[in-house]
């Protein structure tokens, strides 16, 4: 028996918004410690890794490890039926071929349940090594979304260049060039407004706008985003999900541009 009840059901709706453009389907690996999802996009350029810890749920029970292959378009349709203040429970029997979503309104006057068929997915899981990154940049997530959106007008790629002075985002194309420099903030009233750069060595890498823009669909999950870069390895774009977990996107760099 698997059952996970999330009082802040809106978080699950936001998680869905954050992955559904990138992935058509994904396996939710449910275990005693929580729910994990790892999947590559169709082009195998990026990878999504979602971690929801059991402690973040109001009620969590997972008697046996369970892999639930879900069509994300179907799951998204179902989650759209939940109100933002609904409590959401996911449940499934052991070896079941369906999952049930139960939505409870805060005062319990409306309870809906939706059963969805599971699909067998044969997805490769990749081992992601623990890495010390040369540059770790924290910035407001809305600022990052704005930068990606603005620079996408100029070309297909964004160059991210991190030095001890700060971080520079650049794009170039037919209409011209664009550069956005962010300096590390000295003092801020709110920590979520800060730009912080932790640099061991300068790094410059080029990434496809298309994917960065899809990652920014996670912006409503967290006021801050963390970018981790090292030479010639994938970028990590991480959004914390309150005290329940995180969503990380890994993006392979463009080379020879």
């Amino acid at each position: 028996m698997f059952e996970a009840r999330l009082v802040q059901g809106a978080l699950l709706k936001k998680v869905m918004e954050a992955i559904k453009e990138l992935l058509n389907e994904a396996s939710f690996d449910c275990a005693h410690s929580g729910i994990l999802l790892q999947a590559m996009d169709n082009s195998h350029v990026s990878l999504v890794s979602l971690n929801l810890r059991r402690e973040g749920f109001d009620k969590y029970r997972c008697d046996r490890n369970l892999v639930m292959g879900m069509n994300l378009s179907s799951m998204s349709k179902i989650l759209k039926c939940a109100s933002n203040d609904d409590i959401i429970t996911m449940k499934a029997q052991d070896n079941a071929d369906t999952v049930t979503f139960v939505f409870e309104s805060p005062k319990q006057e409306k309870i809906s349940d939706y059963e969805m068929k599971l699909t067998n997915l044969d997805q490769d899981h990749l081992g992601i090594p623990e890495t010390e990154y040369s540059c770790v940049i924290k910035l407001p997530s809305a600022e990052f979304a704005r930068i990606c959106r603005d620079l996408s007008q100029f070309g297909e790629s964004i160059v991210i260049s991190c030095t001890k002075e700060g971080v520079k985002f650049s794009a170039a194309g037919d209409i011209g060039t664009a550069n956005i420099k962010l300096a590390q903030t000295a003092t801020v009233d709110k920590e979520e407004d800060a730009v912080m750069v932790d640099m061991q060595e300068p790094v410059t890498l080029t990434f496809a706008c298309k994917y960065l823009n899809m990652f920014t669909k996670a912006t409503p999950l967290s006021p801050q985003v963390c970018l981790s870069m090292s030479p010639d390895v994938p970028l990590v774009v991480e959004y914390k999900i309150e005290d329940i977990g995180h969503i990380r996107y890994y993006l392979a760099p463009r080379i020879g541009d």
């Binding site: 297909e156 080379i255 541009d257």
Partner: peptide, 14 residues
Amino acid sequence: MAGQSKISSFFSSK
């Protein structure tokens, strides 16, 4: 997309 590397070339399959 020209010059785009694949994520699977950086991480090994489990």
